[in-house]
Design a protein around this nucleic acid. Structure first.
Lengths: 341, 341
DNA sequence: TTGAAAGCGCTAACAC
DNA sequence: GTGTTAGCGCTTTCAA
């Protein structure tokens, strides 16, 4: 015999000699159905192991109870944690999560967005790639009535909701920390300016230098694509400057670890010759030697928050929400000039 | 005006004065439709930006083009990489991926399975929790005709397909490596025996001891739940033995890093007092001090392979497949007695 | 070569 | 209180 197809309303109706509509109403506790019938239907449904086929609903509503998530780099503790936060909240609200990885590539991101649209997901949470400078693929979703919330990496457009870290603030604090350690030639290792995350963090860095009357030197702003190779080259360029930086602030995990390796390989002492601090969610930062100072963001909470906002939009809330999640500075060995050396 | 609903076959038919059936056939190149009509329909479809609503199909087939994935611990490089491999293969074959995290809890796993079933996914890829000893929730999927493939952590039942690492082999090689370093009191840090992954790896460890005529001492087999707290306690117990082990083999990332911290905190030298090696996919293993020796598995490939097998089953292949993916031993400082100390 | 109609499972508007 | 019917978008007989 073929596979046990799930029991349907029709089956229950047939068994009980009722109409499909009555069964449907009884099952959702419609008060216009007599208590006796309701009980009878309830029991039959349980016996037959009935579960509602939500695809039928979806056909009518044109929307599946699914939330689409697009991240640029899924195989990281940061994004897997964001994803877990999203899943957590989504599950509580009756949504499942479909995730896709754009691998930091614009073309893949576009393809992901169109897959999501074809899938008729109820809404999308996205973190853009470092290549993305054109945002029309997202705009067209809005035109279609599919809500979008950006997480971690926002886009410049003003009309979307987003959840981000307190980037400028965190970079400011980290820079001040370095200044207080006696660093005067502080470099920053950046991703592309197309990411608002980057410009925000750079802004915090510059503000701190201004406030402490230190010059902002263009040669100390190292740009790179966000990958290990690029970051290694950019760090090497910084270290080769006539006036070598005495500190580096790295804008994310990838950049931070690449910078660390490059500094060590150059035979420089850390923090003696070059202090290092960076944005990171890698718990291993505290196990490497020297223990790395980091700015941690609350990735899980960012995911949960983004999902809550998105579900709000799905349910009809039109107001955009821009939420900032605090980070925390973890001072460890790599940025402490006065610490044990 | 309301949201731009997608154009449907009906819209195209109306515009062209054809029947819905004709449009449907024309769009899939049915040869019984005249070339002229086909061209006309094709063009209209493009103009109207038509895309097929697959929910309608799904209602009829009772199945969505979705693959469900259940992992015990999503926020790890191992599982996020497995997931990325699955997504990669799924996307190529026209499936999207729904992932859920059981957080190593049996009850969550059961809930995940029933969510997946409610969602009418086409098939499931799962890695069981360390608490799972009853597998009836998976068996009932099979009864429903929903294929399941296990990845990384298999279950004892013989009838399912699975993709696993060459656990016994890898543990054997790692143990032999330790023996060749002069270790004679080799301990193993295990998860629960309910995981086949654990018994397989333990088997390899025991075989190696046998082959080199070393005694298998029960007190050197440290059991723990797979989490940092449990692993720390288990390591402490091992280190407190009258005859302290001179080497530890840890069965996964979590256990490995917990063991490392515990050994260091006890003030013991590594590898001098205790050598350490473990299964891990954490690239940071090579940045900690001392650099950690590891057994790496090909997580991405495991995901791709599992997905290929699953899609085979979805398409009707009934033959079970058991695939073993090779690992590689990365010898670094933490397990080399003769290395620089 | 094309059209009409049934049906996938469910809900809601409209009877009675 | 309960039944009937239409319809969500599509495929697929069956007719013409």
């Amino acid at each position: 015999m073929p596979q046990n197809k799930h029991a349907s309303l029709k089956d229950i109706a047939a068994k009980l000699g009722l109409s499909i509509a009555t069964v449907s109403r009884a099952l959702k506790g419609n008060p216009s159905i007599s208590q006796a019938t309701r009980d009878m239907v309830q029991q039959a449904a349980e016996e037959m192991n009935y579960s509602k086929n939500f695809i039928a609903d979806s056909l009518r509503s044109g929307q599946l109870p699914l939330i689409g998530v697009i991240v640029p780099h899924a195989v990281t503790l940061f994004y897997s944690s964001v994803l877990d936060g999203i899943e957590h909240t989504a599950a509580k609200e009756g949504y499942a999560v479909i995730s896709m990885n754009s691998h930091e590539r614009y073309e893949e991101e576009r393809a992901n967005v169109s897959s999501m649209r074809r899938l008729h997901v109820a809404g999308i949470i996205a973190s853009v790639t470092q290549e993305t400078t054109d945002f029309s693929h997202f705009d067209s979703l809005a035109a279609d009535g599919m809500p979008v919330v950006f997480v971690a990496r926002d886009i410049p457009t003003k009309t979307h909701s987003c959840v981000t870290a307190d980037s400028a603030d965190a970079a400011y604090k980290a820079t001040v920390h370095l200044i207080k350690q006696g660093c005067r030639r502080i470099a920053i290792l950046c991703g592309p300016n197309s990411l608002k995350m980057v410009t925000d963090r750079k802004h915090g860095y510059i503000e701190a230098l201004h406030d402490y009357r230190l010059p902002v030197r263009p040669e100390y702003v190292g740009y790179t694509d966000i990958n290990a190779e690029g970051a290694t080259l950019a760090t090497e360029r910084l270290l080769a400057l006539p006036e070598r930086p005495d500190a580096i602030l790295a804008l994310n995990d990838t950049l931070l670890f690449a910078a660390m390796k490059t500094i060590m390989r150059a035979g420089l002492r850390m923090p003696g010759d070059v202090a290092l601090i960076g944005f990171s969610n890698v718990e291993y930062a505290e196990h490497v030697s020297p223990r790395l100072s980091t700015i941690e963001d609350q990735s899980h909470l960012m995911g949960e928050t983004a999902c809550q906002i998105l579900i709000g939009h799905i349910r009809g809330n039109k107001k955009q929400v821009k939420k900032v999640i605090p980070t925390s500075l973890k001072v460890r060995e790599s940025s402490c000039k006065d610490a044990k050396e």
